[in-house]
């Protein structure tokens, strides 16, 4: 009995908690991608650079606050800086939309054109981020490291295995729950949210019903900027901030959005957790886990790891390919919010 519980604690500590955290970050990122796809109807390749930009601004403000001696320990100082990071990102997306995408909406360009413009913006914003903060790793989390540590857990419960919950993991999960609830309330309970859903459902009819397309587009960008900054800062707090790593997140985030069904917010969330759990579960070494479960004679000698951690990005790619082959519209039917 004790062995089974210990095995479950291993699962909890190394798979469930990390995957919930990573999944929340992917879900927030994928929600932004899916909103843009649902309303503006193109795949926004600049999305992870938006995440990096929001995080960059937040980091600078965090440093300034830390130097000024401001602290909300045990919570990380970055939480105070976060709203300003969001504000900066909102300004950036509205400016870039005004300068680039708006023109292509006017001439009724094809979605492909928008996508290519977004790739241009990806390089531009990526360059901007490296110009401001450089390409090196930056750590900006402070405050308490753990809500409860593995050692405290062991001492408290008497198990051999420990279960730890980092502050950044707790914050990620709580902020994700709040953000997602607020987003769905916004989309379903407010007039502009209904107008957004209507626009996404049937653009022509929305125009015939007097819905102002520019306003819908503006609010979509604002929501996207908020979600992107949240995703970026939470990921940075949990791991660290490095522009190159953020660029690489594009694959799992797009995979999440596509697997869930592009354009479906519920799908983006489901997709985020699906990708995260698969990545973590497939790259986890199950040696100790089965060591508890199997009789000693059968105890595994190798690592029992399906895939080396180095290849974790391949997991999202494989899932993406499988879903596109079997159910191209995604888990939830995509295309409109």
């Amino acid at each position: 009995m004790m062995d089974i519980l210990n095995a479950l604690i291993i699962l909890g500590n190394y798979i469930i908690i990390p995957a919930l955290t990573y999944g929340s970050q992917l879900a927030l990122g994928a929600l932004g991608v899916t909103l843009i796809y649902g309303i503006l109807r193109f795949s926004n390749f600049a999305h992870t650079e938006l995440m990096a930009f929001g995080t960059t601004i937040t980091i600078f403000l965090t440093w300034a606050l830390q130097n000024a001696g401001v602290s909300i320990a045990p919570l990380p100082t970055a939480l105070i800086a976060l709203p300003f990071g969001i504000l900066a990102t909102v300004t950036l997306v509205l400016a870039t939309d005004h300068l680039t995408f708006r023109h292509y909406r006017k001439v009724k360009a094809k979605p492909l054109t928008f996508m290519i413009v977004s790739i241009g913006l990806m390089f531009f914003i990526g360059g901007l981020v490296r110009l401001i903060i450089g390409s090196k790793d930056q750590i900006f989390s402070d405050g308490a490291r753990f809500i409860f540590s593995a050692r405290a857990f062991k001492k408290f419960t008497g198990f051999d295995e420990g279960l730890a919950l980092k502050t950044s993991q707790g914050i990620t999960i709580i902020i994700t729950i709040i953000a997602v609830t607020a987003l769905f309330a916004f989309l379903n309970r407010t007039r502009i949210g209904t107008a957004m859903r209507a626009y996404s459902d049937n653009e022509n009819l929305a125009l015939l019903s007097g819905i102002n397309p520019e306003r819908v587009v503006m609010i979509t960008w604002m929501l996207t900027a908020v979600l992107a900054t949240l995703a970026g800062v939470l990921y940075g707090l949990d791991k660290s901030f490095k522009p190159f790593i953020y660029m690489q997140l594009l694959l799992p985030i797009f995979a999440s959005a596509i697997v869930g069904g592009l354009g479906s917010p519920l799908g983006a969330i489901a997709g985020g957790y699906l990708i995260a759990f698969s990545e973590v579960a497939i790259t986890f070494a199950y040696k100790k886990f089965f060591g508890y479960l199997l009789p000693d004679a059968l105890a595994p000698e190798s690592l029992w790891q399906i895939l080396n951690t180095e290849y974790k990005f391949a997991v999202s790619f494989v899932i993406l390919v499988i879903v596109l082959l079997i159910r191209p519209q995604g888990i939830f039917k995509g295309k409109s919010i």
Partner: peptide, 17 residues
């Protein structure tokens, strides 16, 4: 034509300013 993923009531309520 209709907004197929909205309720009938919402279909009407999106119209007025």
């Amino acid at each position: 034509h209709e907004f197929s993923t909205l309720t009938v009531l919402d279909n009407l309520m999106v119209v007025p300013k």
